[in-house]
């Protein structure tokens, strides 16, 4: 199975005329997320308007508690929005039930987490293959080989997470996230638990995914240096997006 390669260009909201003609693959409109602490409503997102174009890579930055993770969970369909709209590849997540959001997540979203979140009982191969199994298309050896080779995992496939370094585990997590060719890859602080060297490796992998394969990526990070690997940086504060500037 061939991997679709699209021609990437660094997209800038203000300078790239292409951006104005493309339909966003991810779009939020006046997005609110409220949590309940007893009888008190705590807003995590307060009317976020945000869009990502196909093939774009976006870094979301902001202080702790500003709503970055909530935004990621809501646009990834893991959490339900309290108000507003979330459109993923034209599908309105806010109008969907649990089962429909699960289905959409299965086919269109890939997640990478700060703590890797690999299944401890499975080998690297098993952790990647389970995503294919859940996706429903079964094991695709060609796709599996391409992805694992690209992430440099060929020699580590029979190892369990406990037998791998943090960098290796995160590469397995990335492989698991992209094995089913999701429309959007959502990464929640993927370098947060890594040393500088492994952080650079992982960020370079994400950049290659974006540049070579046209993978749309939204990444949350605290690390200002990480943003240099991305097309666009979005800053959040107190549950709202305060700006959207190109990297560099």
């Amino acid at each position: 199975m061939a991997i679709t390669v699209t021609i990437r260009s660094r997209m800038d909201e203000t300078t790239d005329p292409e951006r104005k003609t493309l339909e966003p693959i991810l779009k939020t409109e006046n997005l609110w997320k409220l949590y309940h602490a007893g009888k008190v409503e705590v807003p995590a997102l307060r009317g976020v308007n945000f869009d990502v174009l196909p093939g774009e890579s976006v870094a979301v930055m902001g202080p702790s508690g500003c709503g970055k993770s909530s935004l990621l969970y809501v646009i990834g369909g893991l959490a339900r929005a309290s108000r507003g709209k979330v459109l993923v590849d034209g599908n309105d997540l806010t109008a969907m039930g649990d089962a429909e959001r699960t289905k959409l997540r299965r086919s269109k979203i890939g997640f990478v987490f700060q703590r890797f979140n690999l299944l401890p009982t499975l080998t690297a191969r098993g952790n990647i293959a389970i995503a294919q199994y859940i996706h429903g298309d079964g094991y695709d050896p060609h796709r599996f080989d391409v992805v694992t080779k690209m992430l440099g995992l060929e020699g580590r496939l029979h190892h369990r997470p406990s037998e791998m370094s943090g960098g290796e585990q995160q590469r397995v997590a990335i492989a698991r996230a992209i094995i089913n060719e999701p429309k959007i890859l959502l990464a929640d602080e993927p370098t947060g638990n890594l040393d500088t060297k492994n952080s650079d490796i992982v960020l370079e992998m994400l950049r290659r995914l974006n540049r070579d394969l046209g993978q749309t990526i939204v990444m949350i990070t605290h690390n200002p240096e990480a943003t240099t690997y991305f097309d666009r940086v979005v800053h959040m504060r107190d549950g709202i997006i305060v700006d959207g500037v190109p990297a560099d």
Binding site: G76, L78, D98, A99, T102, K103, R105, R106, S107, I109, F111, F113, N117, L118, L119, P120, I130, A131, I134, H135, R176
Partner: peptide, 16 residues
């Protein structure tokens, strides 16, 4: 619990 969360993030249904 965390593994179940991971499976759900991968799109595992309740039935699965």
């Amino acid at each position: 619990t965390r593994d179940i969360g991971v499976l759900k993030s991968l799109g595992a249904s309740k039935v699965l």
